[in-house]
Design a protein around this nucleic acid. Structure first.
Lengths: 126, 126
DNA sequence: CGGTATCCCACATGATACTG
DNA sequence: CAGTATCATGTGGGATACCG
């Protein structure tokens, strides 16, 4: 897959070290949460308000997973009532470049992909 | 997320045009199938043999989805018994660059991520 | 060879209610 | 405010058997 590992086969193994990253990226809210935190560190409900449709439970799960993977940091604020601020770690911020490239590609090709989908679905009807 | 859309909010919408791409990449076998086809066009069972653990049913599903998104092409060979060859389309091949960048990042950071996971899990015990 | 057809289960996601 | 607890459900993935 990479410029140097195209034919090594490492990417072909289910336990390839890149799996955790691809899995994290594949889930529904992770990338959007990181996009929010890329703008500025934010508190739980602030993130929730930016992500229309996410539930408390699912947002918590997403944040925990990102935290476990070292992408974000959780900081309890000494306020009353207590507040919790989430922010990207240097590791999480460093994901911005490759993820941005992929995002740009996806947006640039979105119409082409959509056309393929419609064409494929239309063929099934006939 | 992208260099130009960091704060536009488009990436924050569930119907962001980049979703199909992130979803496809997130699933278990898609990236590996594309890695195989990046080396050379291959027939169904040839792909299956390279991907230890995948079942016929799931490989078929993966190939259909990639085909629907315009990433790969399916060609029936006029042999006996019939053969089917899958290959990357130009669109699919163009995904190699951004995906390779992400893959390189993931591999380079794998140890760091693993360390964070272990640390996180250890904290839960105590 | 390259598939479908069934059945099944685990897990991601979600709705709702409750709490320190 | 920022969760946890509980219950429900849809879908991805897998095992197995059969087919043109």
């Amino acid at each position: 897959m990479s410029s140097s590992d195209v034919d090594t086969g490492i990417v072909l193994r289910s336990d390839c070290p890149s799996r955790p990253v691809f899995d994290q990226i594949g889930d529904k809210w992770s990338v959007m949460v990181m996009a929010v935190l890329l703008e500025r560190p934010s508190r739980f409900n602030a993130i929730k308000r930016r992500l229309e449709g996410v539930t408390q439970r699912v947002l918590t799960q997403t944040l925990r997973r990102l935290e476990r993977n070292g992408m974000i940091e959780r900081r309890v604020l000494p306020t009353s009532p207590i507040g919790v601020e989430y922010s990207l770690t240097p590791l999480g911020r460093s994901l911005r470049e490759p993820l941005g490239q992929l995002y740009d590609w996806a947006v640039a090709r979105a119409d082409e992909i959509r056309a393929h989908q419609l064409d494929y679905d239309r063929r099934l009807q006939s």
